[in-house]
Computed example of a mutant assay.
Amino acid sequence: MKLNDTVIRKFRVAKVFKENSDKINSIDFYANGETLISSSDDESIVIYDCQNGTPKRTLNSKKYGVDLIRYTHTVTTVLHCSTKVDDTIRYLSLHDNKYIRYFSGHTKKVVTLCMSPIDDKFLSGSLDKTIRLWDLRSQNCQGLMHLLGRPVAAFDPEGLIFAAGINSESVKLYDLRSFDKGPFTTFKLNQDKDCDWTGMKFSPDGKLILISTNAQVIRLIDAFHGSPLHTFTGHTNNKGIPLEASFSPDSKFVFSGSTDGKIYCWSTETGSKVAMLSADHPGPVQCVQFNPKYMMLATACTNMAFWLPYVDE
């Protein structure tokens, strides 16, 4: 089964989970698509089995809170940010619910966290106007960049370069092997006056960069030339929250949540809206991701919803 406009319009909520008492602030699929992990403002981490459609287990992080949860390259360990005590990034073993390492350095809330697709490096960006490069094996920061504004960052699918979005107006591309020499290219975009960039992702094929904001606009640019390709609109964001937008695994579609509880989908080729999918989300849908291996979409407000294409008999 291949993703196309018709298949996307047939997506329906197959299962709703009500494991959380407060909003789910981030989700992440493991690379093989078999499990999904979520972090919530209720200070819990929930692991879901995507094949059986069941919650596997719940861990609590009452002491530090939990935000921006990310799988590493093993299904038993994750990184997450904190919502209280301090702005340390924590490396957690899910197997025994113990911390392996702490990554200290940021002095304000961490707003972007991404794992390298190929090795143990990861990037973090904070409201302290810095981006830091780390390695899971060392608590010491491997690299530090001072910026002029709020950062967003992302690795390309090959893990050789990363993009940093600065001040909601420019995208800088860095080579990981020599990033201390500065960016090898900079794309200047029209500044979004009414909103901040809150998320950045490379498409799975590496050709596109998606920039999500805390307003009713999502931008798509060419990853090689920085030229603006499409601006996706139509969803609502009247609360100024960082709604996540994500690619389908074939890079042909973009999905986003909305404060009206619906899911919107656009074509990356034409820029046109493909579908508006209705769910029973009672609150703003902050998290939206497509499973990397299976024909399944996950969306979250306080509830977690798993979507599958409804096939006519």
Rank of each mutant, 00 (worst) to 15 (best):
residue 160 L to T: 14
residue 48 Y to N: 01
residue 176 L to N: 01
residue 250 D to Y: 06
residue 142 Q to Y: 05
residue 137 R to I: 05
residue 158 E to H: 14
residue 176 L to S: 04
residue 112 T to P: 01
residue 90 R to A: 05
residue 115 M to N: 06
residue 243 L to P: 02
residue 250 D to A: 08
residue 81 C to E: 00
residue 122 F to P: 01
residue 196 D to G: 09
residue 295 M to H: 08
residue 292 P to K: 07
residue 140 N to C: 13
residue 52 N to Q: 15
residue 302 T to W: 08
residue 252 K to W: 06
residue 261 G to Q: 03
residue 11 F to D: 00
residue 126 S to R: 03
residue 269 E to L: 15
residue 154 A to I: 05
residue 261 G to M: 06
residue 259 T to Q: 03
residue 57 R to S: 13
residue 256 S to N: 11
residue 255 F to G: 00
residue 3 L to V: 07
residue 261 G to E: 09
residue 262 K to N: 13
residue 279 A to I: 00
residue 10 K to Q: 15
residue 86 D to M: 10
residue 27 I to L: 13
residue 261 G to R: 02
residue 79 L to I: 05
residue 161 I to S: 02
residue 57 R to Q: 15
residue 294 Y to T: 06
residue 16 V to Y: 11
residue 292 P to L: 08
residue 77 T to R: 10
residue 76 T to C: 11
residue 60 N to F: 09
residue 15 K to L: 10
residue 307 W to A: 00
residue 23 K to D: 14
residue 229 L to V: 14
residue 158 E to I: 11
residue 82 S to T: 07
residue 26 S to M: 04
residue 184 F to N: 08
residue 97 N to Y: 04
residue 50 C to R: 03
residue 159 G to E: 00
residue 287 C to E: 00
residue 70 R to L: 12
residue 164 A to R: 01
residue 61 S to E: 15
residue 259 T to E: 06
residue 192 D to A: 14
residue 269 E to D: 15
